[in-house]
Lab assay of single mutants.
Amino acid sequence: SDPSEDRAPESARVGNIPSSTSALKVPQLKVAESAQGPAAAHTTDTAGYNAMEESVSREKPELTASTERVNKRMSMVVSGLTPEEFMLVYKFARKHHITLTNLITEETTHVVMKTDAEFVCERTLKYFLGIAGGKWVVSYFWVTQSIKERKMLNEHDFEVRGDVVNGRNHQGPKRARESQDRKIFRGLEICCYGPFTNMPTDQLEWMVQLCGASVVKELSSFTLGTGVHPIVVVQPDAWTEDNGFHAIGQMCEAPVVTREWVLDSVALYQCQELDTYLIPQIPHSHY
């Protein structure tokens, strides 16, 4: 159930021909089969995070001529859309010479989310990475209204306002976009420790780096000194050995919190207090 199309920051360009055919990675995205229709094609874990990302398996898109002007500035990904909605975005992107990729990268400028009429969405990996990267996180209605009015409308009017977990109007995407000089995790050293489900560890690490944190791979690698705040992030329900995560405190002095601390902080683009996310640790033995 991992969102495989989000696994690594590679891009698939639509609308320009790469210098070599080997560089072309066409979105071959799968549809989750469901008797209840597209709305039930998501699996949500206890964290309220949509693990099964969206989309559609299609034939290789038709490439435009390399001489045609390509908008190098805009690059989009989509999240939560049905196959039909994805194809509408594809046509919109081609019309406006926008790069459409299946994986979010540093070059991505827009994340197009499936939302309700009030621009509230589910939480997906692309949603988190879009906010963390200060990108435009907009409703699919931006595409449909632009098509209806036959011009590209202003993104401000379609920015995602909230999500089904953290609140319907928290304005996290807007706050992140306007606060890239004040990253929420700066001054923190974060170790993403142990197993994680539904989200590859490297993507979680990239997320906290985008928010200004330094990533530490091992508990023994924390910088011990003033001005640096170490934090260990774990996902308790992913551990097979009972309560192993309670013993992390015996290996390092850092506070240990659940992954929800990261996800909530990123969604709201406000660093949350650790208290409600802390995992009790077995104290050091004193002999």
Rank of each mutant, 00 (worst) to 15 (best):
V164S: 10
V31T: 05
T108V: 14
Q180S: 14
V233Q: 02
K135F: 12
I104E: 02
G48R: 09
K148A: 14
F141L: 05
A39K: 09
A117L: 08
I98E: 02
E218S: 13
R7V: 03
F222P: 15
G133N: 09
I131S: 01
Y140V: 09
K114L: 06
S139G: 06
F86N: 10
H284M: 15
V164R: 05
A41T: 07
L274V: 11
M199P: 05
I147T: 15
L63G: 03
H97L: 09
H286F: 03
M113S: 01
D45A: 13
G48L: 04
P3T: 12
K151A: 11
F86K: 05
C252W: 05
T201P: 08
A267T: 07
L219A: 15
E122Q: 06
M251H: 11
A41V: 09
K114V: 03
T101G: 04
L24V: 13
Q209M: 12
G212K: 05
C191S: 04
N166M: 04
L103G: 15
F185I: 00
V262T: 01
H229S: 11
G133V: 03
L274S: 07
T226P: 13
P280H: 03
V234M: 08
N71F: 08
L29H: 09
P38S: 06
H284S: 12
T21V: 08
Y90V: 07
P283T: 09
D202S: 15
D157P: 09
Q281S: 12
Y269K: 05
V266W: 02
Y90P: 06
E178F: 06
M87A: 02
S179N: 00
D116E: 02
D275P: 12
T21W: 04
R186S: 14
L129T: 01
H97P: 10
T197S: 15
Y90S: 10
G15W: 04
E59I: 06
D157A: 06
A117T: 06
R150L: 07
H110Q: 00
E273S: 11
G48E: 12
L125R: 02
T223I: 06
F158I: 00
P173L: 01
E10T: 08
E54A: 07
L129C: 15
T124A: 00
T226K: 06
E189V: 08
H229A: 14
S4L: 10
P200C: 15
R161E: 02
V31M: 12
K91M: 08
H246W: 11
P236D: 03
V70G: 10
I98Q: 03
Q235T: 14
I184F: 05
E155S: 10
R123M: 02
T108H: 04
A117I: 15
K135I: 07
E155G: 03
E10V: 15
F128N: 01
A176H: 04
V77H: 02
R259M: 02
Q145C: 03
I282V: 06
M113P: 00
E260V: 04
R7G: 13
G15A: 07
A117R: 07
V31G: 12
T21Y: 06
D163G: 01
R13F: 04
N102W: 04
G162F: 00
L63H: 02
T64V: 15
A267S: 15
S285A: 12
L63A: 15
